[in-house]
Amino acid sequence: MTPSENPVRQMPRRIALKWLAAAAAGMALAGRLDLAMAQVPTKSGKPIGTDPVLNKDYKPGELWPLLMSPAQRRAAAALADLIIPPEEGGLKPSQLAVHEFIDEWISSPYDQTAKDRPVILAGLDFLDAEAQQRHQAVFAELNAAQQGGIADAICGATPATPAYRPQVRFFDRFRHLAAGGYYTTPQGMLELGYVGNRPTATFDGPTPEALKHLGLA
């Protein structure tokens, strides 16, 4: 492998080091991930630039290639759907391409988002490895209770055991991105109770109910 073919070398050094540290920690503690995981995809794609077209819809993958493997993408879709279960009649986060946003995020040419890449990719690999270990299937194929069992071990609601501790960071970051991706879609905004971004002839101020809620009525 020449230096130019070594994907880790092409990453910014501090990201590469963080990735290797996360991967190593995951391997050592989980004890069942192989070295293939260290094949970090090459950083590629150009930044947005200072003069992008603003009034068009962009899709993940349009500006830079997405780096998750098909298996990682399936795990990401399943975890996003577990973290943010759909309301009655609503679409799942995966149906709103929230996992593709997360892929866009970790694949970007910006250090500030790409720093999540090693944590997220290693975490997604962990999900499948853990699912195989527990249930002999990949994470996306588990039922809700089985997925929940794994999530409970790493979501931080109760202290994680040492073996799972490295994945608490993964879960936190993944949840942050899943929520950020979901609640910035029109469906997610409505669920949160955001009802703006629509033209109105007048701005009417707070409703009587809102004033009453605050003791201002």
């Binding site: 279960p85 999530a151 931080g156 609601a157 942050h176 991105l177 929520a179 997610g188 949160l192």
Partner: peptide
């Protein structure tokens, strides 16, 4: 209650699922 941005999860309590969603709805805005 302004347009949500990617930081919406902010300081939400650990957890996921319905409880997480409810936590975000409560504190949004």
């Amino acid at each position: 209650r302004r347009m949500p941005n990617v930081g919406v999860a902010g300081p939400a309590k650990p957890g996921y699922g319905k409880a997480f969603k409810e936590d975000l709805r409560r504190t949004y805005g």
